[in-house]
Design a protein around this nucleic acid. Structure first.
Length: 726
DNA sequence: CTAGCGTCA
DNA sequence: CTGGTGACGCTAG
């Protein structure tokens, strides 16, 4: 009882402490938990007290866990016992894992906080494959081991050999890369934590080949539209089981143990479903192999020019103040520029701008039918008065500052690097997504800012703000980007076998979008600007994925009638593309789902909906999934192949920084640049044929590589057509 | 048109 | 006072 009281008390203190230890409003900011920096000389920002508190609580949980007779604490064993344990691990048939966090939760608990410090790993070793019939009890030969997963700084490590740290590391390696069945819910998080904790002592290549089954991934493959937010949800959905209530202390430990047993059952259930749905190969050969790729990517530190970021933050701040002043002058009064209510009063009650443009219909707010201050409205008003333009620019600057400058700064806290979190199961099409920051949404084009200077000489200075340019390779390293050119369109050519489209990609390789842009703008190909090309690209994809006339006319900038003509002529030119679209829709109606090139599946529950608009949406989703999903398959395959090449080589050292859907961004040693570029290009282009998955594309794949000393300044790299020697 | 994430009212 | 939501911004095809 006493122990439990103590537990609750310190839990309370800790929660207060964590609240205190959150100087910035963003929850995902890492609060100086970097083990490498907690050396003797860096005691900053109250780290002392918080450390003490969390440790006492950790002690409490560890105590609960290890006082449970079924759990062996690996750290407390003597060297002989440790050797025996390693052997037992080798002999086990199944390993079921979960991370234990310092606040006493595990990966099986719902709603974990985003950057929870990890304290250990609980391993259930099963000696046979049975599911353990009586609800949650262990088999007679099953055993449980607790592995402490906290880093002792190098300066505090014992000098005796082998050091206990390395024993634990070897045990971890045995657990993670053994040949037996290994199961973990959210395996990527576990792998990433291990790589972070043993950053110095464990090379990522050593866990590259690990093959951990993960029910989160299998459930997502079975139904990518299912939210399945936590382990409990998955259990409720797929397994019949008694209701459980949250518990504390020793009961909590029993619950964790029974959770592991259920995890194993859930995994088996999902595996058999994968097999019966024909998804096993995709799961085992692709998605499971993505786990170490993503874990390695997340545990890599991307260097950011923090000082430059801070400077641009200040610059944008002063720019906003200037614009605010200008807005007040233009309005003839002081008001809050961020408030749409106050802006509405100024624009329509004071200046009465709406009365001066009766020929245009101004948008209204949806709720109260008031005059809108949306971008569309301001664009219509901008010729009547200087104020709308000022507001528009203010909003643009504000957007860049809050999302891309301050946003990235808040992901760094006291560090000078970032690591995004990459999600394997959050996109229905099979693409991966990123958070904190969202690497895949950083602006491609820099923003021009005119800065007023109150110094003699020049009056104005134009500064360009480019968030991508803030990402810098480490000293002696270079960024390398490899881009699959027009993947989705090439896949569409393959899937539809359209002779016209195939011809475009097979013949001498002019850029497709440049070609199309020159065709309908009536200019020479070398006169097509990059904006023209982007424009053409958007139009092509819009038409292919079934944009309506309204939407298309908006994108093209012409009347709806002309949009319809364009649409018709496009689909007449590429008749087999249209046939493919119709075929796909028909098929989705018949079977209720649709498949990508590698067998990824999307169920479409609304495909036979009586509601016309709902049904049409499902039809567009069906067509889009086949193409976007197939492109995702290819890109993931490329990541895995390159990852395996690097990890099995002793000389290659390049690391994946980010995936931007069709583009892979690597950080590579300067001297390896050309060789690695050739390797990446040939590996990616060779995916035209993937024999064991039955993929033979009718079009060649084209990969463009570029390199640079910042992500904002990449320039194309010409690779000779020689195949690299092994 | 289809996918995402982040910010804001 | 806080938390959920839908719009709109950025990205990728």
């Amino acid at each position: 009882m006493k122990a439990e009281e103590h537990c609750n008390e310190s839990a309370e203190k800790t929660s207060k402490q964590t609240a205190f230890c959150k100087p910035c409003k963003r929850q995902w900011a890492k609060c100086g938990t970097d083990p490498a920096k907690n050396g003797p000389k860096s005691f900053h920002g109250g780290a002392n007290t918080s450390e003490a508190l969390t440790q006492s609580q950790d002690g409490c949980l560890t105590a609960s866990l290890t006082s449970e007779p079924r759990v062996k604490d690996f750290g407390q064993l003597n060297p002989d016992e440790k050797m025996k344990m390693l052997e037992t691990t080798r002999q086990a048939k199944v390993l079921v894992l979960t991370m234990v966090y310092r606040d006493g939760t595990t990966q099986l608990d719902p709603e974990q906080k985003l950057t929870l410090p990890v304290c250990g790993l609980l391993v259930l070793m099963k000696s046979d494959l049975s599911c353990g019939t009586p609800e949650d009890s262990l088999g007679p030969n099953d055993s449980l081991v607790y592995l402490k997963l906290e880093h002792t700084p190098a300066w505090a490590q014992q000098q005796t050999h082998p050091s206990p740290e390395l024993f634990t590391r070897d045990m971890l390696l045995q657990v993670l890369t053994g040949s037996q069945l290994v199961v973990c819910y959210k395996a990527k998080d576990l792998l990433r934590s291990v790589l972070q904790v043993y950053r110095r002592e464990l090379n990522w290549k050593r866990v590259a080949g690990c093959h951990i089954q993960d029910p989160q991934v299998s459930a997502w493959l079975l139904d990518p539209t299912d939210p399945s937010s936590c382990f409990q949800d998955l259990l409720n959905k797929h397994c019949r089981r008694p209701h459980t209530t949250p518990a504390l202390g020793a009961q909590k430990v029993s619950q964790i143990i029974s959770g592991l047993c259920w995890l194993y059952r859930l995994n088996m259930k999902l595996c058999s479903q994968l097999q019966s749905q024909g998804l096993w190969k995709l799961y085992s050969d692709m998605e499971l192999n993505m786990i170490p790729v993503l874990a390695a990517m997340e545990s890599h530190r991307i260097h950011v020019d923090k000082e430059a970021l801070k400077k641009t933050s200040d610059l944008l701040g002063t720019k906003m103040k200037q614009l605010e002043k200008e807005a007040h002058q233009a309005a003839g009064q002081i008001f809050l520029v961020t408030s749409s209510t106050q802006l509405r009063t100024v624009l329509f009650e004071k200046l009465r701008l709406h009365e001066r443009c009766e020929n245009k219909k101004l948008p209204k707010t949806i709720n109260k039918q008031q005059q809108s201050t949306s971008e569309a409205a301001l664009l219509l008003l901008q010729d009547l008065h200087p104020l709308p333009k000022i507001i528009l620019e203010y909003r643009q600057v504000h957007k860049i500052k809050s999302t891309f400058v301050d946003g990235i700064l808040s992901c760094m806290m006291c560090k000078n690097y970032i690591s995004s979190t990459w999600h394997q199961t959050s996109a229905v099409t099979g693409r991966i997504s990123a958070k904190h920051p969202n690497f895949q949404a950083l602006p491609r084009q820099p923003l021009q800012i005119t800065k007023k200077q109150y110094v003699q000489g020049k009056e104005e200075e134009v500064v360009t703000v480019h968030p991508r340019a803030m990402f810098i390779p480490h000293e002696g390293w270079t960024f390398l980007a490899a881009d699959f050119c027009q993947v989705e369109l090439r896949l569409l050519a393959h899937l539809s076998s359209d002779p016209e489209l195939l011809r475009i990609f097979t013949s001498p390789q002019a850029d497709v979008f440049t070609m199309l842009a020159s065709q309908w703008k009536g200019v020479r190909e070398d006169e097509v600007t990059s904006e023209d090309r982007e424009h053409a690209k958007r139009i092509v994809y819009s038409v292919v994925y079934g944009a309506g006339r309204e939407r298309l006319s908006g994108i093209l900038g012409v009347s709806t009638e002309q949009a319809r003509l364009f649409q018709d002529s496009f689909l007449q030119t590429y008749r087999d593309v249209q046939a493919f679209i119709q075929r796909t829709i028909q098929q989705s109606h018949k079977q209720g789902y649709v498949l990508s090139i590698m067998g990824r599946r999307r169920n479409l529950p609304n495909i036979n909906s009586p509601d016309w608009s709902i049904r049409m949406q499902a039809e567009r989703q069906a067509v889009n999934f086949v193409v976007q999903g197939s492109a995702a398959d290819l890109c993931k395959m490329a990541m895995i192949r390159i990852f395996n090449l690097v990890s099995s080589s002793s000389s290659l050292s390049a690391r994946l920084i980010a995936q931007l859907h069709d583009e892979l961004l690597y950080e590579v040693e300067d001297s390896h640049l050309e060789q690695f570029a050739a390797l990446v290009k040939s590996t990616m282009e060779s995916l035209q044929r993937i024999d064991h998955l039955g993929v033979h594309l009718k079009v060649p794949l084209k990969v463009a590589v570029s390199s640079g000393k910042s992500w904002g300044s990449m320039s194309e790299l010409n690779i000779p057509l020689t195949f690299p020697s092994p």
